[in-house]
Write a protein that binds this DNA or RNA. Sequence first.
DNA 1: GGGCATTTGTACGTATGTATG
DNA 2: ACATACATACGTACAAATGCC
Lengths: 82, 82
Amino acid sequence: MIDHEGPTPLYVQVADAIAARIEAGELLPDRPVPSENQLVQEYGIARGTARKTIQLLRERGLVVTIVGRGTYVVSKRPQAGR
Amino acid sequence: MIDHEGPTPLYVQVADAIAARIEAGELLPDRPVPSENQLVQEYGIARGTARKTIQLLRERGLVVTIVGRGTYVVSKRPQAGR
DNA sequence: GGGCATTTGTACGTATGTATG
DNA sequence: ACATACATACGTACAAATGCC
């Protein structure tokens, strides 16, 4: 699933994997995505890489992060356009 | 100039300092900003912190980065809208 | 109020890869 | 071949926010 050798950065691969899980409905709106530590364990990556994964998903507008709580799939509500 | 104790993250402080230098015309459009290694030496920070500084400036639209070359103050030109 | 676990944020250091000149 | 500079990835430690007991 994750290729530690290929040219695609790990954090991109993992972000794509998470995005696919959201797309597939496995991870639902307003529900948490795996925590950084869970990503570390599930995908065998370092925490810094897990953080970049989450950051990328945030930049893609797929998740939102709340300090001390976790990162959640964005709500499906109107959300005022943007 | 840089407060290693206060509540403001180092990378934000350094980014603000660089932004001020751009604002003041000390760093000019299409000219390079200090490299990561230079930031490390000039401000006494770690490389990772220097990277986050540059990243923040990039997100603020103040600089652009070219791999293998360096990071430059954005041009003042029309830049075709976007 | 305190204590604890969980989670994200910051900051450090190191190594290797890739692009440019 | 070499030097410079950014990109990725690893690891570690501590701080801050949250939630629960």
